[in-house]
Nucleic acid binder design. Structure first.
Lengths: 218, 218
DNA sequence: TAGATTGTTAATCGATTAACAATC
DNA sequence: TAGATTGTTAATCGATTAACAATC
């Protein structure tokens, strides 16, 4: 461990655009794999993603060598490499805070278990909600957030609470040791360095679509 | 109309990263406005967004002149300019296809009417679903998609159907004249030039968060 | 006035695209 | 072998950051 592992390929940090493309490549590869496809070229993958072969190869060469010159990439192997690169071959515990409509939908809709995430807890303040089942877990009081996360070693959280509660919940999560928050609220959270926040205001996707159909008529 | 309008400021196309930031600035400005704030500097806005003042000014200077040198930007005025730039001061008609859990959640959760979008139709194949109310509309059979969109001049669509139906629905939307599709399915849609597709696979946000907490420990 | 802050140009940085030798 | 396609370097392109004159 004291020296750089020679088997590790590049180990330079991946560019942010590359990371977001990798997760989309993964989805495409899973679809290809399910349809029985065994090999895919950078050209094919680019056609599916909507970019170009050069970019695909550039993105993929950070993963360690998986392609066969003259042949392309083996779908399953590439899938595994991307999973490893994203880290999702290791399971991380996740909690959901805010079990309203959006929160419950995300919990049900996203196949977390398939992507290295284990939903171990769900929290809400509503007495009607507390105690009900949500997928694999039972909803508990938001007062437990900090202790629960600390006790179970929770690393990730999804935040779908009303904006008035967002910062307090965030503080509780961070105090409990959570290191990544997927923030669906309108609030810009203040978190200490070392905690990752991804803001995903759904309405922004709608606005971007709107603009895309506004700017150039064709 | 034959000459360039001299009142139009730059009118060079906005850079894609700028567009996505603009929609987030808008949310921040709305919050500021609601809290009574009247003026904001590029420095303040950058602190809230999490970038730097230079980038904020660079982004904002495409909108036409709204800032006051030495003073900052008026919150309400800036809000209006961003709305105009995104185009959301003009109403566009939108339909939802796929009224399952995710689709209905989006329809309820996103304040479309507040952002220039009018939900005029919702479609599903399920007989139980057809005829039920969804926000301002009644769910109708997916068979009507094409004719309905053409008849009402629908421009935008949200797609939350099972993947097996995605391409067919997309074709129907396009045939009906829809020019922008917000695609929440795993399928990469094939659409003709001039139709904008924004792929928003929610799971990808989870994967990106995962990676962010994997790469550097702090 | 002096301090603050914009608008905008120039410099830097990073990401995408092109090109091609290596090779299956 | 010839054709295809990777891995990777170099060239181009675009986005971010720095700097500063203009000015409220």
């Amino acid at each position: 461990m004291s020296e750089a592992d020679p088997s590790t390929p590049k180990e330079r940090r991946l560019a942010p655009p590359t990371i977001s493309r990798l997760s989309e490549y993964l989805i495409i590869l899973e679809e290809l794999g399910e349809s029985g496809r065994e090999v895919v070229s950078s050209r094919d993958l680019a056609a599916l993603y909507g970019n170009n072969a050069s970019q695909v190869r550039q993105d993929l060469c950070c993963l360690g060598h998986t392609g066969r010159v003259g042949q392309g990439y083996r779908v399953r192997e590439l899938e595994r490499m991307i999973r490893a690169t994203l880290g999702i071959d290791t399971i991380k515990k996740m909690v959901l805070v805010g079990c309203g409509r959006l929160g419950t939908t995300l919990a049900v809709h996203v196949p977390m278990a398939h992507y290295g995430m284990e939903l171990v807890g769900a929290f809400d303040v509503s007495p009607q909600m507390i105690g009900t089942r949500l997928g694999p877990v039972r909803v508990q009081s938001a007062q437990n957030i900090r202790d629960f996360c600390a006790k179970h070693g929770v690393e990730l959280a999804v935040l779908t609470v009303p904006k008035t509660a967002a910062q307090d919940v965030s503080d509780a999560l961070v105090a409990g040791g959570v290191r990544g928050i997927l923030n669906y609220t309108r609030v810009r959270l203040r978190v200490p360095a070392g905690v990752a926040v991804k803001n995903r205001q759904i309405v922004c996707s709608f606005l971007q679509l709107f603009h895309a159909t506004t700017s150039q008529p064709a």
